[in-house]
Design a protein around this nucleic acid. Structure first.
Lengths: 227, 227
DNA sequence: TATAATTGTTAGACTAGCCTAACAAATTTT
DNA sequence: AAAATTTGTTAGGCTAGTCTAACAATTATA
């Protein structure tokens, strides 16, 4: 598989944003792409011809552009890398969520399949980046798992925290104390019929939490949705 | 502080390796740099003029080149980034020590002071990378003992292995068999004038090694440098 | 020391990615 | 439907980084 230049990758990513992530359109015009990327239309025109030759986009003279199947696949790989790096910067290196984008713009162009797969693993296969945007998996699939709260999770299942409902300092402090954070795996060990307390395991540590608390923790559960 | 291009950074790093990390020289020739970087001498010639204009190297027509104070500072920053990334890949993402170099070659060019300082912190301020090479700190300080190969070491001196040149499985297996590893002390007992075999002592055990082998073992020798 | 070999430089050409200026096609407005 | 506006294309030029081929300076050798 041919390696694309830094610039070619940025064009694919830009066209992806304009045609696939924007709900209302499936094609992008030359001027529109130019504005989005901060270059002149003449420059875009040259690149569109080049990307067409490489079979990464559909393009005809005076027409709009869109990604081919291969082009879309490539674009999704770049988006995946971008969002995984953002997650890394935020979760592991304590960058603020509004500082991560600029650095991820550079990191997303690093060429190494092994690197990105290992990073994914290291981050616990996150499904969303610090901005809440979904992260495609290694196959390029955007898994939209239904969200629920921890109180609804089945005993024996392993789920992943993706957010909270309560945002009070008091609540967040408790969340923190239990070792919970975005993308943190949680295993439900048992539920007490008597008072609905839930026994969970987080990072090897066991806790018993109240239903009131569990109700505030938003999760997704791959196990529930498999098959 | 002006930002250097990917290519300019690679030239500085190359000149650094040839003039500062190699024991016996303080200047590098045009052809030598070309060979090291895998480009033609004519190309190097252009870049040397450019780096001279930017006051990053000392260079005169038909003369050898060396880094200025500023050039050296820049080169050390790149080396620092390279080695921190190697450490990250090895320690956090479970890359083998012989797989990290290629990816670090790309990562070392990411421009973000904050990123590299956070990474340093995340890794607990490591002082050596997976190959045993020293990592300069944020101030660029590094206790540089000149590196050379075992074949150059004087009889009677005790040195320390800090790396290898050959990375083939065959070679590394032999290295292992002799009890050699990063930071392993080696004593040179004798050299045979007849066939240049070198008698060494590693961990109390004596071995006789070929010059071909010795040439691949990178060492530092405190004795040689203690005047 | 004269010659050969090596090392370094110059000139000219190429590509990728960018630009401006002029023009052409498509679309919108009147 | 003609004119005006917007959108897209082309031609030609620029820079960084690369190359080859010819030449010049330096160094090693006979």
């Amino acid at each position: 598989m041919q390696v694309l230049s830094y610039t070619e990758e940025n064009y694919l990513k830009g066209i992806f944003k304009l045609t696939i992530e924007m709900a209302d359109k499936t094609e992008a015009g030359t001027n529109e792409i130019a504005t989005h990327l901060g270059v002149k239309p003449a420059t875009v025109n040259d690149m569109l011809k080049k990307l067409k030759d490489k079979k990464l986009i559909h393009y005809e003279r005076y027409g709009k552009s869109s990604l081919t199947k291969e082009g879309k696949k490539r674009a999704i790989e770049i988006v995946r890398k971008h969002r995984l790096w953002e997650t890394f910067l935020h979760e592991k290196l304590a960058f603020n969520w509004d500082e991560v984008h600029e650095v991820a713009e550079q990191l997303e162009h690093i060429q190494s399949k092994k690197l990105i797969d290992k990073l994914d693993q290291f981050l616990n296969y996150p499904s969303a980046d610090p901005h809440g945007d979904l992260i495609p998996n290694a196959k390029g699939e955007l898994s939209i798992l239904p969200r629920k709260t921890l109180i609804e999770e089945l005993v024996g299942h392993q789920c992943k925290m993706v957010g909270v409902k309560d945002n009070s300092a008091e609540f967040l402090k408790y969340v923190d104390k239990l070792g919970l954070s975005i993308n943190q795996p949680i295993k439900v060990k048992a539920k007490q019929a008597y008072d609905n307390q839930i026994d969970i395991e987080v990072n090897g540590k066991k806790h018993s939490i109240s239903p009131k608390f569990a109700e505030q923790i938003i999760i997704v559960c791959p196990t529930c949705n498999k098959k």
